[in-house]
Design a protein around this nucleic acid. Structure first.
Lengths: 212, 212
DNA sequence: GTTAGAATGTAACAGTTGTTACACTATCAT
DNA sequence: ATGATAGTGTAACAACTGTTACATTCTAAC
């Protein structure tokens, strides 16, 4: 699929045609792979990314060691931190890493703010995005504050399954432990119990979800 | 202090004078006490509050029972949820409760969005607010994800001390337990240990912070 | 003063999560 | 085939948090 089709596909319904044309003439398409670090802590960001395909995971890091998955970005999403950084002169508080390979559109800072005054649909999109990210952060809070590790693990598997669009999750126990900020042994223990209950099937490097 | 002075005090530096005049002619001042529920879950919000004085705590509730303090709003702050609700037709995901008595300016929805196109300073304020709330939520995530209960408790005491501008925190163990989503016994136990270490002094209905 | 209720102190125990240690298996490069 | 490495299984234990139960103290209302 070329850029035009991807753009129409993800943003055709929400942006007016002049804006779509302007985006197409200005934005650069960047491909990313799994594991690519798209934004890192303390980084200044000069372009705003619009996700065309694939998925990006947004992580938060502790001051010394821990790390935690906050949420995934998917087609049609953008990163709240980028908007913030573009509008102010702020450093990123999060890390964004490719999870499912895909493509992003990079919008230069000046355009980002210029369009807010120029296109109603762009302004609405920016606010809508802030709102969505805010609510996703609230969800992350709910998860870590109110769920035990078993439910967080299940929740993780379901979320990951959703963005992969598959019942098989290709992750090692160690990977999962890192994203949930726990230890590998704990993950293995809980997964094994879930397998015994018949809810999942464990394989080397992958987990199949049997019952949702 | 009358409304004019309060307004100049908190927002005089960031808003242009025409906007300040317009706010003064349109906004209503509302006094709130400790415990007043200013915004509740699932509520539709039709006015945007600007905090002139006092402090407001923002809480998140679990589907069944738990509750958790996310952050405090202080002078010059506004509520991200209100902005969201005003711009879209969304319901509140949080509860806002008066913590330190004070006053808020209520801005009608229409003005809120009208001003975004009309005043650069207002737009900047709205984005800045979104950004601040987002970062405060990230802080809340850090706290619950990476700190143990003892550090969360200390952190709570310091934050509360800050908004009260006093080393004495007037809260019962039960109050604190509720805001940290834990149990009273746990709070009492940890507080007693902190007292033994000489970091705080316990009294009925209040806690004095000795060492920060 | 008596009494009811709220706030606090504390013990004992249960459940969850984190840590250490080690065994075993699969995979890959040589 | 051999060895190295990564991934997984599991036990034993430690640490932290949550629960139940009950005693004590303080305060306000009568």
């Amino acid at each position: 699929m070329d850029m035009h089709d991807l753009l129409i596909n993800s943003y055709g319904d929400i942006f007016e045609s002049e804006l779509l044309e302007e985006i197409e003439s200005i934005a650069k398409v960047v491909q990313f792979k799994e594991g690519d670090v798209l934004i890192d802590y303390n980084q200044y960001i000069k372009t705003m990314p619009l996700l065309l395909s694939g998925a990006i995971k947004v992580m938060r890091e502790d001051y010394d060691s821990g790390e935690l998955l906050l949420y995934y970005l998917e087609r049609g999403d953008t990163c709240a931190m980028s908007m913030t950084c573009c509008l102010g002169e702020k450093q990123s508080e999060i890390r964004a890493i490719g999870e499912v390979p895909g493509e992003i559109l990079m919008i230069p800072v000046q355009k980002m703010s210029e369009w807010i005054g120029k296109y109603k649909s762009w302004m609405a999109f920016v606010f809508e995005s802030y709102n969505n990210r805010f609510n996703e952060l609230l969800n992350a809070v709910d998860t870590i504050a109110f769920m035990d590790m078993n439910d967080r693990l299940l929740n993780y598997l379901f979320e990951k399954s959703k963005i992969e669009n598959s019942n098989v999750v290709y992750k090692t126990h160690q990977d999962i432990a890192k994203e949930l900020n726990t230890s590998r042994v704990v993950v293995s223990r809980l997964l094994k119990a879930l397998e015994t209950e018949g809810r999942i099937k464990l394989n080397r490097n992958s987990i199949e979800i049997l019952v949702k």
